[in-house]
Design a protein around this nucleic acid. Structure first.
Lengths: 123, 123
DNA sequence: TTAACATATGAATATTTGTTCATTCGTTGT
DNA sequence: ACAACGAATGAACAAATATTCATATGTTAA
């Protein structure tokens, strides 16, 4: 009872922001969408993967070239490429021994460059 | 020597993709930008923070209300809000005992909704 | 088949991260 | 001053993560 009252007191005070909580709750992103969004952003939330995507934004490239460009071990690069591939951010094409990677998702480029712009315009 | 040749052989084979590595390297996102991009995306790469932002996208809200909306402890919410505030994704306004949070960055909304669209249109 | 090579993968490890718990900091009302 | 409340914080812990190492695939050439 004491607890409930405390909650209500706060809800009252916050009602001053012109909407009540149930309205916000209804318009909020649902659990599933939140999870998907987070999963997507998490994939982009690592310097190595950002660089991989940044490189593939310019050109289709094989694993070895990505290793040279990022100055990283082959295994590490391969693991991250698999990660990106599982999320369909990146796709691969085999040609003999070498495997070429490229972006699988046009939206990534938009999201990527939109955020790049944002960073440039925020001193 | 043997190693160098191996590298060159691979570079040769990859030259077939119409650009050479030095050209790609020059056009690639630099280390600093990659780090900033990753930092930004990492902030968005967690379900809790996605939900927080999702709620604040609709309305300015106090910590307690966010706790109720997300069904989470006050401490956890507060920690995540600080995280978002350090990256200037979110800002706060004090009013007596309660602190109201809102989005600090218009770009976030763009990035957020662009990615939401993307998720909706990918079966 | 054998050797050489490009890539993939599993296990191990060190680091990072999200939440909880306990406590503290400010503010308001008594 | 005191108690009550909303929010912030630091330490601790469990879970997730990125890289390395060693090894395994699969492909090509000899």
């Amino acid at each position: 009872m004491v607890d409930k009252q405390a909650v209500e007191l706060c809800e009252d005070s916050c009602a001053g922001t012109d909407t009540d909580l149930s309205t916000v709750k209804n318009r909020m992103v649902d659990e599933a969408s939140a999870a998907e969004l987070a999963e997507m952003f998490k994939a982009l939330g690592d310097p190595t993967r950002v660089k991989l995507i940044g490189a593939l934004l310019i050109n289709e490239l094989c694993v070895h070239d990505l290793c040279v460009l990022l100055d990283m071990g082959q295994s590490a690069v391969s693991h991250q490429l698999r990660y990106l591939r599982n999320l369909r951010i990146v796709k691969r094409r085999k040609a003999g021994k070498t495997v070429y990677y490229s972006l699988d998702d046009a939206h990534i480029e938009q999201i990527f460059s939109l955020t790049l712009q944002h960073l440039k315009h925020s001193h």
